[in-house]
C-alpha cells in the first residue's frame, strides 16, 4: 500500500515540470518512506527521515527555488541508451532480491552475526534500555564519530561554496573587515 503510494509519487516527480510541485512531492515521498520505516519497526530511522527528508531538505530546496526559476527549461525526451542501462540495472537488482532471506526471518545471516550478542549483553554492559542507542553510541561509537565528521565536512563545504561570498556594498565590506578577527573560523571562507 505505502510502496504503491511511493511509486505513484516517484512517477509524478519524473513527469512534472513545475519544480515547486516536484519539491513538495519530494517531501511527501520522504514522509511516505518514514511511514514504511515505522511499518518495519525502525522508528529511529523513520524519525530521521521525517525530520530531514520531509522537513529540512524541502526547505533548503525551496530556498534554492527562490533563487532560480520555478519550471524546468530543458525539454524531456526519452533517450534510448540511458533508458536501456536503467532497465538492465533495475532488472538485475530485482533478480538479486530473489536470493535475499524473507523479511523478519530469524535465521537470516544478519541476525546470526553480532546481533544476538548485542541483545544479550547490552543491558549488562551498557545499561541503556534502547539497544539502538547503545549500538549506535557505544558499540559502534567510532562509526558514529565518522558520521558526525561527514556532517561537519558537509557543513564546511557548503559554507565554502555559499557562505561569505555575498556581494557586499563598500560600507558593509569595511564593517565586515573590522568584525573579521572576532568571527574566528568564518574568516577562512571568502
Amino acid at each position: 500500500m505505502l510502496l504503491g503510494f511511493l511509486a505513484v509519487t516517484a512517477i509524478a516527480i519524473v513527469r512534472l515540470h513545475n519544480l515547486f510541485a516536484v519539491v513538495m512531492l519530494g517531501g511527501i515521498y520522504s514522509l511516505i518512506s518514514a511511514g514504511i520505516f515505522v511499518e518495519l519497526d525502525a522508528v529511529d530511522v523513520a524519525f530521521t527521515e521525517a525530520a530531514v527528508g520531509a522537513g529540512i531538505s524541502t526547505i533548503v530546496l525551496l530556498g534554492t527555488l527562490a533563487l532560480t526559476k520555478e519550471t524546468e527549461t530543458t525539454p524531456k525526451k526519452i533517450k534510448p541508451m540511458p533508458f536501456l542501462v536503467v532497465l538492465v540495472t533495475g532488472s538485475a537488482l530485482i533478480y538479486g532480491t530473489f536470493d535475499m532471506p524473507v523479511l523478519g526471518d530469524p535465521t537470516a545471516p544478519v541476525h546470526q552475526h553480532v546481533a544476538p550478542r548485542y541483545i544479550e549483553a547490552s543491558g549488562r554492559e551498557v545499561g541503556v534500555p534502547n539497544i539502538v542507542t547503545s549500538v549506535l553510541a557505544s558499540y559502534r561509537g567510532y562509526d558514529t564519530l565518522g558520521e558526525v565528521t561527514v556532517i561537519f565536512t558537509a557543513g564546511i563545504g557548503v559554507l565554502m561554496l555559499l557562505g561569505g561570498r555575498r556581494p557586499r556594498k563598500a560600507g558593509e565590506k569595511a564593517e565586515a573587515a573590522k568584525k573579521k578577527p572576532a568571527r574566528g573560523a568564518g574568516g577562512k571562507s571568502p
Binding site: 530556498g63 558537509a154 555575498r166
Partner: peptide, 12 residues
C-alpha cells in the same frame, strides 16, 4: 550545520 546551511541559502 543545518542552521548554517539554511543561512547560506537564505542569505543569497
Amino acid at each position: 550545520v543545518m542552521i548554517t546551511i539554511f543561512y547560506g541559502f537564505a542569505g543569497r
